[in-house]
């Protein structure tokens, strides 16, 4: 295969989104990260990935390629077996643990059914001992951002699947994370809701001014959303290539119908085919 990871990553990192001196320093840098499960399965092999501030980056690949595992390692959930994870822009505490400022949106909304929407979004602050009165404005602000201002007192069971996912996004954003990690968040939703949430996510991303790492198995979703698409292959889980999507934001319905969009989709699909064959 002529898709050697090093070569393509090098060409990809030549154009990070905004090239000022400060932002060229990556937010997170994964170097030679490996992960082997206790049963011997190699989930990730030699993962090298720099994530830059304010990027929208997608991890795309067939199931079992370790994209979710990679995302969890970025979140600090679960240990990795080798390599280094570096947070060049973050503070490190005395034990050498970085202060990751991350939010995580899981495949399922993972809301507490016994708590209102407001309390669900308040949870990250509650766990950090910040009083409700102090952060109530922030909670309301972030609910406004995801379009759920009127549902602060509703319970999760009273919401539709798409609205639950919005609450989950609000909860992830309430601490103003630098990095928002999303693990196939829209996979379980219907096509119409998914399209709508994708549009809204781009708006949220531009307003919240954070970096998004988005795991997906949909070529179209990744091309619509991201600036950079990292394609992964399975057995062992590894990065096989990377593509830039230079279309400007805001991306609208016209972009979905443009020839530029379908051209990118073809490219990404081609790379995904390589991933499936290898």
């Amino acid at each position: 295969m002529n898709y050697s990871p090093a070569k393509i990553v090098a060409s990809g990192s030549a154009a990070p989104p905004m090239e000022t001196e400060k932002t060229r320093k990556p937010l997170v840098r994964a170097q030679h990260v490996n992960k082997t499960y206790s049963n011997g399965t190699v989930a990730l092999k030699d993962l090298n990935l720099d994530v830059y501030p304010h990027e929208f980056i997608s991890l795309l690949g067939p199931s079992g390629c370790g994209k979710s595992t990679a995302l969890r390692i970025f979140a600090g959930l679960g240990a990795y077996s080798g390599g280094t994870m570096d947070w060049p822009q973050s503070m490190y505490d005395v034990s050498g643990k970085p202060e990751r400022e991350v939010g995580f949106v899981f495949q399922e909304p993972t809301l507490m059914p016994w708590a209102t929407v407001f309390d669900n979004v308040y949870l990250p602050h509650r766990l950090k001992d910040r009083p409700k009165a102090e952060v109530a404005d922030r909670v309301r602000e972030v609910l406004e951002l995801v379009g759920l201002s009127n549902f602060a007192n509703a319970y999760p069971r009273e919401l539709s699947g798409g609205m639950k996912m919005r609450v989950s996004v609000a909860r992830a954003l309430v601490t103003r994370p630098k990095l928002l990690l999303m693990d196939e968040p829209f996979a379980a939703l219907d096509e119409i809701t998914r399209t709508r949430l994708s549009n809204d996510l781009l708006e949220i991303w531009s307003l919240a001014k954070c970096t998004v790492m988005f795991v997906t198995h949909s070529v179209f979703e990744s091309v619509f959303l991201s600036q950079r698409i990292v394609v992964m292959a399975a057995r062992p889980g590894r990065i096989i290539g990377e593509l830039q999507v230079n279309a400007p934001y805001p991306r609208t319905k016209e972009y979905r119908l443009s020839s530029e969009y379908s051209e990118h989709c073809r490219e990404v699909s081609g790379l995904l085919d390589v991933a499936m064959r290898s």
Binding site: A75, G76, L77, V102, F104, F106, Q107, E108, T110, M112, L123, P124, L127, K128, R171
Partner: peptide, 9 residues
């Protein structure tokens, strides 16, 4: 999933 959320924070 919620246990993961608690672990994350």
């Amino acid at each position: 999933g919620l246990l993961n959320v608690f672990e994350l924070y």
